[in-house]
Amino acid sequence: MTVSLAVEVENLSYSYPPARRGADPRTALRGVSFSVRAGEIFGLLGPNGGGKTTLFKLLCTLLLPTSGRAKINSLDTRASANEIRRQLGVAFQSPSLDKKLSVEENVLHHGHLYGLRGNELKRRIQTVLERFRLQDRSKEIVETLSGGMCRRVELAKAMLHRPRVLLLDEPSTGLDPGARRDLWDHLKMLREAGDVTVLLTTHLMEEAAECDRLALLHLGQVVALGTPGELVSQIGGDVVTVRVGNPQPLAGEIRNRFGVTPAILDGSIRIECREGHKFIPQLVESFPGQIQSISMGKPTLEDVFIQRTGHRIDE
């Protein structure tokens, strides 16, 4: 059986036009390729400035690619923007609400723009407001709401017209832990129901770990692609972190003695090794008195990102 693809990105590049005459164009994406299967929750993980938001704008048809192509449900964003827009539900990272209107009015106008009306629209508004626990606030003017509340209205709006593909830019930003859990429960419910594909951007590890598959984005390129489990298992074994006063010389000595490649991050030495529990005693005995603290952990997505780029994700 062939798996249908909801999103296909092929060798996609985008450069912003130069800010002033004579300046160089700013390249935000350099030949990005990946695809998202229908029904998947797919995450784009990367630091701010990594190209996530540009990729997001290309997918929701706000920008046209400089080269390469992007397709949503087999429709090219360059040729079929209007058909694509019909199938998309988009929640931007920056707010897109009219602050002078009430919650309900915002959602109502949104429904009209997607061709919904009358009782059907009323029913749907009722449903999404309840789902995001907004039913008591529906008459309130948006500018009086808290940031987290606005995010919920934003998400309610994106789902009102039951899109086939949901694009969410940093959906959890500004949500309190409870609302974040609600959002994820809902996304997983949509996944169970089967016909919605979710593509979201995030810089949060916990959120990325919840996705079915991930693309790690750094400096406009995909540096890793796979399920969170696959990505983490690419790092053999354990991650050992050593805190010392002066990491530089010690890292060199560790490299010479054990033949591993230590990295220095935030003043700590970070070593990937197969069997951490055997490595740690050897390490401590080799450098008595020099080590302030030492810890061992299973690799996380952060470690994958560090291994591929040499940077932490929130730098």
């Binding site: 209007n82 827009r85 920056s94």
Partner: peptide
């Protein structure tokens, strides 16, 4: 500036 326009621009509206 407030972002309202971008949500209108991605809606299926001419």
């Amino acid at each position: 500036q407030t972002g309202f326009l971008q949500s209108v621009l991605v809606a299926p509206v001419r």
